[in-house]
Write a protein that binds this DNA or RNA. Structure first.
Lengths: 225, 225
DNA sequence: TTCAATTATTGCAGCCAATGCAAACTTGCA
DNA sequence: TGCAAGTTTGCATTGGCTGCAATAATTGAA
């Protein structure tokens, strides 16, 4: 059992287990047969729940496959980024935040080694990525379901920009707009890293490609200005 | 009748009319009642076609509302962009291509003044934009259905980059990757322009905001490098 | 341990999007 | 006019998704 599980009551633990069972069944079956050749009925059956219960846990077939969304790192990491100062390249900083966010999502709930779905979590994420690769619509859905993450990142960027450039901080609207622009550019880098990863056959760590994309972005910025 | 229509046979003209009728009915009804409170049956009825015919024209309810995708300008404009030379700021150039692409899409088939659905085309686009504004999922779908446009723009960028930087042109993979990165950044600017437009209440010309966003992007690039 | 409140699961009935198929109909062309 | 090609339609069917109400499990308190 992972650490998180122990502190929860039976009810919560069961909920979590069911949630995972459904995700696992969805991804597993979709990988075997292709996304639109699996029905919710089949998934539910494989996960030992009723089809109706499936929809108690997930809004749609897609969202069961897409998995949990990334989250920003904890407070200290954020503060370090915000306070890094105008000399530190902001893009690299954002890149690191994203690397952490993605890694944390990918291995959430898998800290210890031997729980029931221990290796499952690894496998789950591999299969998911393969699905994204073969099924670009799913990736698009994942991206477009990240509004919350986008907003969070924007808010952090606002703070950083306000520190770096007190002049900009005086115009709140301008500050917000700039933060949003940089956030969107960062997401562009993320998409870039991902397509690069996919075009390389979908093997190897995404994190290092993410760093490369941010580095290239930095370089492009230099070239273009 | 618009010029384009006259050169077509009856069959083609009817097809076009049906297509427009369906789009119009979809957007109109969705604006009145909200996207998911309209059924395909209702739309079809309003457009005087059978529900089955609706799906002969559009893959899904969404795609009837989303409308036609943008297309790159004609050859001469493209060539001018490709040949502009390394001194010309590339971002501004892309921005202009996008402005043209968006304007052309928005008023396609509406060149002359007095055809049956003349004012209709204007109204159609206004309603569509309002729908995008109130219904971000639709906008996300529009964006993610632009793969073709993305690829076209990438290809054009490849040519431009190859001209500007013969060294880069020698490494085809690197060239492709860089083109794609810049394309994605340009799309980020587009999204930025759009959210700005939406946050301003959804009035006024999108084109000028698009130019602003590209200009700000230019400035950000300078700041960051 | 028992009981009542809360919360989860399930089956059922039903809506709607979307697709395949084959029959009727329209248009283009000789 | 008549035939080939393309278009519209109805019908039947699959499958995603929701509301509702009954049943079952979990919890916390007595």
């Amino acid at each position: 059992m992972s650490v998180t599980d122990d502190e929860l009551g039976l009810r919560e633990r069961k909920r979590l287990a069911t949630r995972r069972a459904i995700q696992f069944a969805s991804v597993e079956l979709a990988s075997e047969r292709g996304f639109d050749r699996v029905t919710v009925d089949e998934i539910s059956h494989a996960a030992n729940v009723s089809p109706r219960t499936f929809f108690n846990y997930f809004r749609s077939k897609e969202s069961a496959i897409i998995g949990d969304l990334p989250e920003l790192p904890d407070g200290a990491t954020i503060e370090r980024f915000v306070d890094a100062g105008p000399e530190e390249p902001i893009l690299a900083g954002i890149g690191e935040l994203m690397v952490v966010a993605i890694d944390d999502t990918d291995f959430a709930g898998e800290e210890s080694g031997a729980e029931a779905d221990g290796r499952g979590a690894h496998r789950l994420h591999e299969l998911r990525r393969a699905l994204y690769k073969d099924n670009p619509q799913l990736f698009a859905m994942r991206i477009s379901s990240m509004h919350k993450f986008e907003d969070e990142l924007s808010a952090v960027l606002e703070r950083r920009l306000a520190r770096d450039d007190p002049e900009l901080a005086r115009n709140l609207e301008a500050l917000k707009q700039r933060a949003r622009l940089i956030m969107l550019v960062a997401f562009a880098a993320m998409r870039h890293a991902w397509t690069t990863w996919a075009s390389l056959g979908g093997v190897g760590p995404l994190a290092s490609l993410l760093r490369s994309s941010f580095a290239e972005l930095q370089e492009v910025a230099r070239t273009m200005s």
